[in-house]
Write a protein that binds this DNA or RNA. Structure first.
Length: 436
RNA sequence: GUGGAUGUAGCUCAGUGGUAGAGUCCCAGAAUGUGGCUCUGGAUGUCGCGGGUUCGAACCCCGUCAUCCACCCCA
């Protein structure tokens, strides 16, 4: 009989080993730098909120996905399932302490109790960024430019930001008398890429009729260029209007910014979430489109309407960091993250313990990360340790080195061994290694 | 939440009713003029978990958990 508890983690939850966690931290740090480049500032909020805050408006679908329970004091609480709703509460509570427009980013874990798949977990990190307190093309464009920069910085310049404006679609639907079914139609259209034209047409015909389905499909057809597509949309929804103008303004900024064809007008992109009211976007990686959008968002005209009378329009997006890591791994584009220490001091002689630590101290004082192997094990094991951790250099000394006060520095890859006069020489050599 | 596939040693997998296997990895030893090549030996599995059928189950049946895929939704 055993009283050992089987170690396991919940479905959709994961442990991260050093290599994976290093990657996550690196990407996260990269994003923080990119956000800062655009003047976005960081915030954080609690992972647990009153259930009514998180479940307030969102009925059905999201409610089923939110982890909620009674805390030890009997309060109904819930774990945040995205960073936008907590942000809305945050703004309602702190807007008087802040300034508008307020541009914030928030990189943190969120939880959703839905079924798992590759790149789809129950606990995952989102990098959310929004500009609130302003409704302008400049703000919309800044989010797009930021997504573009983030994609470049993350190592996926070969990606496309698909953009659309829901307002245009709604105008179009109104013009053909289907405004009442806009939500269903938007959802159906959103699946065009996945279902294909025929199936989408069939489903649209169920919502309206065959002729209307054809009209809708014509409407969402892609043109030969951003402006060509936009001209088509403008014509089909009854001529110039503020929503088309917004896209034109964004496009002119994109040209000045030299975004090129990384920004695509995609009339079939609508996003399922019903709080978006203006431009919406998704970001697809050319190398692995199957994994889905790695950064999605859009404009909403009232962020915190549930919690305050102050009207806060905004625009923002969320990068799915874990999905991105899964994608980068799948296309083999994660840069290896080495061990922080590039030098291992081999521990071969029980009488030299003080010397090893003394050398390590010198190195560290010089800002040089190093390790002393923590036991006098066989050399093969110490070499193996260094290799597994990606440490390229080892320092050791044999009997004669010990007598002479010298050290040997060996490159594990080239096998080259260099004899060094003393600790200062080791420090100097390691400095060169780090620099070179 | 619904449907399908999968689940055997740390890893990759073979084994379809009759005493649990291979490769790799790991450990020990030999050789090696400070490891990595070679040789010898060794360890490791409640066959995801729990029931059932059977003289006998890794294999058949049911349930359950996890992973992957599709739906739904989304990052």
């Amino acid at each position: 009989m055993s009283d050992i508890i089987t170690p396991r983690v919940l479905k959709g939850f994961r442990d991260f080993l050093p290599e994976a966690e290093s990657q996550r931290q690196r990407l996260s740090a990269t994003l923080a730098t990119t956000f800062g480049l655009f003047g976005f500032v960081p915030i954080d909020t609690p992972i647990l909120e009153y259930a009514e805050i998180l479940l307030g408006k969102s009925g059905g679908e999201t409610e089923k996905q939110v982890y909620h329970f009674k805390d030890n004091g009997g309060r109904e609480v819930a774990m945040r399932f995205d960073l936008t709703v907590p942000f809305a509460r945050f703004m309602a509570e702190h807007s008087h302490e802040l300034y508008l427009p307020f541009k914030r980013y928030h990189i943190a874990k969120v939880w959703r109790g839905e079924n798992t798949q590759r790149g789809r977990y129950r606990e995952f990190v989102q990098a959310d960024f929004d500009t609130v307190g302003v409704d302008s093309a400049a703000a919309d464009f800044e989010i797009i430019a930021l997504i573009r920069q983030a994609m470049i910085d993350l190592g996926t310049p070969d990606s496309k930001i698909l953009i659309n404006n829901r307002g245009i679609f709604n105008r179009f639907l109104a013009s053909i008398g289907l405004a009442a079914k806009s939500v269903e139609i938007l959802r159906t259209v959103d699946k065009l890429a996945k279902l294909g034209r025929d199936e989408t047409s069939r489903q649209l015909a169920e919502l309206s009729d065959g002729r209307t389905a054809g009209l809708i499909l014509d409407f969402i057809a892609a043109g030969t260029s951003f402006n060509d597509t936009l001209d088509n949309l403008t014509r089909l929804c009854g001529g110039d209007n503020p929503d088309c103008d917004r896209l034109r303004e964004i496009q002119s900024m994109a040209e000045a910014y030299a975004l090129g064809d990384s920004m695509v007008l995609a009339p079939w992109i609508t996003r399922g979430l019903d709080y978006y009211t203006g431009v919406v976007f998704e970001t697809m990686l050319d190398a692995i489109p199957d994994i889905g959008s790695v950064c999605s968002g859009g404009r909403y005209n009232d962020l915190a309407g549930l919690y305050t009378k102050q009207r806060l329009p905004g625009v923002g997006a969320a990068i799915g960091l874990d999905r991105l890591v899964a994608a980068l791994e799948a296309i083999d584009r994660l840069k290896p993250v080495g061990n922080p220490a590039i030098v291992l001091i081999l521990n071969l002689d029980a009488d030299q313990q003080a010397e090893y630590q003394g050398l390590a101290a010198r190195l560290r004082q010089a800002g040089q990360a190093c390790e002393v192997f923590s036991d006098t094990r066989k050399m093969a094991q110490q070499y193996g340790y260094a290799e597994k951790k990606g440490i390229e250099w080892v320092v050791f000394r044999n009997e004669s080195d010990k007598a002479n006060g010298t050290w040997k520095l060996k490159n594990l890859r080239t096998q080259a061994i260099e004899e060094l006069a003393g600790a200062e020489s080791v420090v100097a050599s390691c400095r060169n290694l780090a620099a070179g």
